[in-house]
Simulated scan of single mutants.
Amino acid sequence: MSRPIRVLIAKVGLDGHDRGAKVIASFLRDAGMEVIYTGLRQTPEMVVNAALQEDVDVIGVSILSGAHNTVFPKIIQLMKDKGLNDVLLTGGGIIPDADMKKLMDLGVGRLFPPGTDTNVVVDYIRNEVDARRRN
């Protein structure tokens, strides 16, 4: 039997709105996942180092500040530098569709806007982690 899916939920930068991140963390826990919440005002370096230390399967970034085009590419690069090639980077927040496509082209997983059914997020994470574990 494999271990539970481990998810790191992060808030990067000065964005102080973490209600959505806490709601997602709660739903993921209820779905049987182990969740580590970094708290507010993290840097991309702090997030990737925590992911490495906690041996996570998923990094989920909640971002409402508009800094997504800076934050996600920086995290992707740090993940590559640290060899976290099998870790899923996903997230959600206020991100325009055109920006979501650009970020996904860089290697970011699916991004979820506010109001997304939490079951959709849970199913996505389960399916992605299952596929990565099989490879």
Results as ranks from 00 to 15, higher is better:
M1N: 13
P4G: 10
I5R: 14
I5T: 14
I5S: 11
R6W: 01
V7P: 08
L8M: 07
I9E: 01
A10Y: 01
K11S: 13
K11M: 14
V12K: 01
L14M: 11
D18Q: 03
A21C: 11
K22T: 06
V23H: 01
I24V: 15
I24F: 04
A25D: 02
F27I: 00
L28E: 01
M33E: 14
E34V: 06
E34W: 08
V35T: 14
T38S: 15
T38K: 04
G39A: 11
G39F: 13
L40D: 02
T43A: 01
P44C: 11
V47W: 04
V47R: 02
V48R: 08
L52H: 07
Q53F: 08
E54K: 13
D55H: 13
D57V: 02
D57L: 01
V58M: 04
I59V: 14
V61H: 02
H68K: 09
T70E: 15
V71D: 03
V71I: 15
F72D: 11
F72T: 12
I76L: 15
I76T: 09
L78Q: 07
L78T: 06
L84A: 09
N85F: 04
D86W: 04
D86Y: 06
L89I: 14
L89A: 12
G91T: 07
G91H: 11
G92N: 10
G93Q: 05
I94S: 06
I95C: 05
I95L: 02
D99K: 06
K101H: 08
K101R: 13
L106N: 06
L106D: 00
R110H: 10
R110G: 00
L111I: 15
L111Q: 03
F112Q: 08
F112C: 07
P114W: 06
G115M: 07
G115P: 13
N119G: 12
N119H: 11
N119E: 13
N119F: 00
V120T: 15
D123I: 00
Y124L: 07
R126S: 03
R126E: 12
E128F: 02
V129F: 09
V129L: 09
R132T: 03
R132H: 03
R133P: 03
R133W: 12
R134E: 12
N135I: 11
